[in-house]
Simulated assay, not measured.
Amino acid sequence: MDQPASAQSALRLASITDLSGIAGCWYDGFFDDEVIGEIMHPNRKEHPKDVYWFLLRGIRERFWDWRHQFVVVTVYEGGKERIVGAADWRRLGDAGQQRELAWGDPRNLIAPTLSLYHSLSLLIFPNRAADPSRSSFLSAAVDDSKKYWTGEHAECWDLHVCGVHPDYQGKGIGKMLVMWGIERADEEGVSASVLCGEKNRGFYAKGGLTEEVGKPGSGEGGGIVLFRNPMGSKTA
């Protein structure tokens, strides 16, 4: 994959205090991305901060979805910790369901409360950077790909989002984030997967994600779903 990361970089699980840092890292990394930038936010140059708030809303809601696990890579600059890469892995299947809290746990109210708050705030402060007809492009692609996580791939660690700050790309940060989920998948004897664009196929192939099972959506921005079988198993 990319070059080995600096010894000063460290990977850890994300905490609630990291959410704005993750959003800032992804803002820089995805601002001119084909999907989040060009397709979903064509007016981003005029309203750049609206892209940041879009990313932060999604991060907040998924952080309180117990199937999701955020991991970050940090460095120290000027004596302060800085997030330079982050990934959102989600556990699909029965084991993912087991990560959820008991029905009566009050923490289950956090995600829907945040979703309602975000919906109301968007009525007052709409996402001016977005094309309304394409604002749900990414979530629609994810929903369209659900049919691929069945059978031998029903139990899976899926790389939902992975982004590295442009200043730190090519330094092994992406590899650290990808390998975190692959190692969890191998430990549990399940698949790993990613929905990505064609241009990132080579990067993920270096991490063993080579089995193409489908192309959700079509036309502009269409992606591919790649899988990696657990270590020691045979590829279908």
Rank of each mutant, 00 (worst) to 15 (best):
I110K: 15
K147G: 12
Y52R: 10
S6P: 01
Y52D: 03
D105F: 08
L114D: 09
H68M: 05
P112G: 05
L13I: 02
E46R: 09
S20W: 12
W53Q: 14
S15E: 13
F70A: 02
I182D: 07
A23Q: 03
V142I: 13
L177H: 00
R60W: 15
G24A: 14
A95G: 13
E155Q: 15
I224C: 15
I16N: 11
A10Y: 07
A14C: 12
V73K: 10
F30C: 02
R82N: 13
G93W: 05
S135G: 13
L177Q: 08
L13R: 07
G29A: 10
G221H: 02
D33S: 09
I16S: 05
A10N: 13
R60G: 06
W26K: 01
M1Y: 02
G104K: 09
V225I: 08
H47Y: 10
E46Q: 14
R99S: 04
G78V: 06
P48C: 06
L209H: 07
L101A: 04
K215Q: 13
G151D: 10
V161Y: 14
D50M: 14
D32V: 06
V71S: 00
E81M: 07
L226W: 03
F125V: 05
P166R: 13
E81P: 02
Y76S: 06
E188R: 14
W157C: 07
G221S: 05
K49P: 01
L123S: 03
R60H: 15
A192T: 05
L120A: 05
D2A: 12
G214P: 15
S145G: 13
G151L: 08
V75A: 03
F70S: 02
F125A: 04
D186Y: 13
M176A: 06
R107M: 11
S233F: 07
V84M: 03
P106D: 01
P126D: 09
V225N: 02
S20R: 15
E77W: 03
A154D: 01
Q69R: 15
I182R: 13
L123Y: 06
V75M: 05
S135A: 08
G207S: 07
S139Q: 08
S133F: 01
F227M: 12
C162L: 15
L109P: 01
D105S: 08
Y117C: 09
K171M: 12
F63E: 05
K171H: 11
V71N: 02
Q97Y: 00
E187C: 10
R44W: 10
M1R: 01
N127V: 06
P216H: 04
L56N: 11
E211Q: 12
G208L: 07
D144Q: 14
N229S: 08
K199A: 07
G58I: 00
D32L: 08
D88I: 07
P132Y: 12
G202E: 12
V84Q: 02
P106W: 11
A87N: 03
G151A: 09
G85W: 00
